Amino acid sequence: MEVAIVTGASRGIGRATALKLAEEYAVVVNYHHQESRAMEVVAAIENKGGKAIAVQGDVSNYEDAKRIVENSTEMGKLKILVNNAGVYDVKPFIRTLPSEWERIFQVNVFGMFNMIHASIEHMEWGKIVNIASIIGLHPMARAAPYCSSKAAVIALTKSLAQELGPKIKVMCVAPGPTDTDMLRRIHGPMPADPPEKVANVIMEIIKSGVEGECRVV
């Protein structure tokens, strides 16, 4: 059985992506804190005849990343990794603490490094999709750490695409505003795409994307 890992899959884009991938793959639903919501995702997949497990882990911790990947290999052959887990904040740069900058990079950039590093030795071939952001391409004010981290994700994607391809195809998706808990917590109600729209684009790039592509949603 072919397996897909989705990090941060208990809600939002990760949840929608896990449900979509489950139509074709066994899915590892990674979560950090939201166990009950992760189990709801697993139940939804199983109720539709799919196969899934929930695996707790903080992707910014390399040992956790290795454990997430090891759990996936017990289900079958790892073919897909969707690096979705991320953190976001908005505040004036002058009020941003070094620890806040570091935490955003730990999850958004080092988390992807950890998951990719732990995964590639288990992939005979496969596809890696990193979730970037439109503001990694077109940065906005009051979000310097997040914008910088997502720009790093795009650069990481393009570099690894050259290094790991064609055996492992590395691509990224850059969503605009998406209706998630994280967005509502920071910005309140605002026009935003449903997570399912992003999940559909992730599936499209898995099927037809080219190495190093960063597809804007």
Rank of each mutant, 00 (worst) to 15 (best):
A155K: 15
Y62N: 03
I128L: 04
I131V: 06
N130A: 01
R185F: 05
L19S: 13
A174W: 02
I5C: 11
I104E: 05
E63M: 13
S99T: 14
K197W: 02
S148Q: 12
V87Q: 10
K48E: 13
R95K: 15
A18K: 02
I135L: 08
G111I: 06
R184H: 04
V29K: 10
V153Q: 01
S99P: 08
R215I: 10
L164M: 13
P92Q: 12
V216E: 12
R185Y: 10
I5Q: 11
V69D: 02
A16D: 02
H138N: 15
V107L: 05
D193C: 00
A52P: 12
L156M: 14
R95D: 15
V170R: 03
Q56F: 05
I94N: 12
A52S: 10
A199C: 12
K66M: 10
S208H: 15
T180G: 00
F105D: 08
K66D: 09
R215D: 04
S148G: 14
P194L: 06
A118F: 05
N114E: 06
V82W: 05
M203R: 13
A9D: 02
S133M: 03
P194H: 10
Y31R: 07
A52V: 10
S72Q: 11
S149Y: 02
D181S: 02
N84G: 00
L164G: 08
K150H: 04
G111Y: 07
V217P: 09
I94R: 14
I45D: 00
R184V: 02
A4N: 13
I206K: 02
M140L: 15
G76P: 06
I53D: 09
E63I: 08
I202K: 01
F105K: 10
A144N: 06
M123R: 07
E121W: 10
A44R: 05
A16I: 02
W101E: 07
